[in-house]
Design a protein around this nucleic acid. Structure first.
Lengths: 285, 285
DNA sequence: AGTAATTACGAGGTACGTAACAATC
DNA sequence: GATTGTTACGTACCTCGTAATTACT
């Protein structure tokens, strides 16, 4: 008796006829018919009331079906366990202070190690570094190189903040702005932007911040309201929007340099990725 | 993934090495090695810590093992259910008033229908007939043809009672005996002899009856004690025993004629057996 | 040296699909 | 006549066993 035969039995029950089941299973009708016959021989019992034109389950068939479903459920449990195990082995936990460097890191990683799965967590800089030390994260993305000798830091990318202004707004005339110019204006702002949220709260404390979790809704609101919003030079950001212009911010806090940090004794995959990223960012210069 | 691979996994655990497991499974070592490799590929995980010289289960292997054992236990449950179903389908319930005609019927049945399994139950004549009517039995063996028109009776065999006497006993001089001659003597007597027990209790009420359930013990006692016992001309009875002789009993109650009784509308197997028996007993005349 | 595991290769068996057939609705 | 299920036949794949190879104890 084979598991495939049990799956076939379940399929025949589900689709009513051998023909229909065979179609669903992507095998020929005679093949399925024979396979079911083999199962009956193995079990020493007819499983169907047969006419030349149809099959219906008899008592033995229903019994076999119950057993089959139980066995197949167990098999699925096993397969799920192993799928989960593979997934965990392929995945690396990334603690980052911002989303943009995660996008960059993900792009670089899938290019060179397509099997790898990154599990990003946005958090504070201190927490990210501590997760790295606790082995709760495999890599971290911080705003400065770490001082700890057990960790290795390499520059990953820079990100510059812009403010996106409707042309109807007087600020749109300016070629550069500082946070001081913006304080008090209403801002549309995305959720989960990491440390940028801290910068915003600190630098424009009097502004009303309208947070959005859904990117589609966010963009829709940007298009249809007069509220300001931030963008950056990260390539994943939205392109130009009609009736709006992006103006660079001159403040030092509007410029971030991200560093990829990993334990020097990390897993081989981690070391591989770090050196690959190092090489790629070096080439980019 | 196939069930056989799970069995192989369990075997490797049990016998420690692939070689030993292969030997137990009656396949070659390379074949088992490949099969295990296929399982690992299917699951996407190495299951063993491998050296060139041995294998030991790693965490994934132990996990697979637990799942495998559960799945295989379920499969065994299924197979057992179907084995039991087949057994029940092959078996016929026989209600009989005595053991000897069951032996005869069994011999005749296995000769012609080797797949059939007889499940004998010793009971009283009235109870046997009623079980037949209730369909609690498929056939019955009675001491007279039934009067009921829905039942069909055919003669099966006759059995004549003898008394087995040590030569040291004065009765051994006689060429024939009656129950009256025996009343008061001690008797070794087998358990489960059907209606013969009733006859005995009725005809020699003053005798002490030493019952035995184990045939080996019974024969041992016959050989080593002076107690009388009964034998019959049924071919399965013990042959002559040194120092003892069997003497026929003349009473009418010491002679039984057995009839095989079955419903006229019984299962085809039952009708087949009845007509086969009828034919065989006719030939014997 | 001896044992255990893996790789190479040829052979056999098994299950597949196509085609033909049978029978019901 | 259309749909459904079973049998016939040739083919392709897959797994097996034997033999050769590698490496550890």
């Amino acid at each position: 008796m084979e598991l495939e035969q049990l799956r076939q039995l379940v399929a025949v029950k589900r689709y009513g006829t051998i023909s229909a089941a065979a179609q669903e299973l992507h095998i020929s009708q005679p093949s399925l018919s024979r396979s079911i016959h083999r199962l009956e021989q193995d079990l020493g019992q007819e499983l169907f009331n047969r006419s030349h034109n149809s099959v219906s389950f008899n008592d033995a068939g229903e019994l076999a079906l119950r057993h089959a479903e139980r066995i197949l459920a167990d098999v699925r449990l096993m397969e799920d366990d192993f799928d989960e195990m593979s997934r965990q082995q392929r995945s690396l936990r990334i603690a980052s202070v911002a989303p943009a460097p995660i996008w960059r890191l993900t792009a670089l990683t899938v290019e060179r190690y397509p099997g790898t799965l990154l599990e990003p967590v946005l958090t504070s800089e201190a927490e990210a570094e501590s997760q790295l030390i606790n082995r709760a994260a495999d890599m971290a993305i911080l705003l400065k190189p770490t001082a700890l000798p057990t960790l290795h830091s390499i520059p990953l990318m820079t990100e510059d903040l812009f403010v996106n202004v409707p042309v109807s707004n007087p600020l749109s005339e300016r070629t550069s702005l500082s946070f001081a110019d913006l304080n008090g204006q209403s801002f549309l702002i995305m959720h989960d932007i990491g440390f940028w949220m801290d910068v915003t709260r600190q630098k424009i404390p009097d502004s009303r911040l309208v947070q959005q979790t859904d990117r589609g809704v966010f963009i829709q609101l940007v298009r249809t309201t007069d509220m300001l919003c931030f963008t950056t030079n990260a390539p994943e950001n939205t392109g130009p929007i009609e009736g709006r212009i992006s103006i660079p911010l001159v403040d030092a806090d509007a410029h971030a340099t991200y560093f990829l940090v990993a334990p020097r004794d990390g897993a081989q995959r981690v070391l591989d990725i770090v050196s690959w990223v190092e090489q790629q960012t070096a080439n980019a210069h």
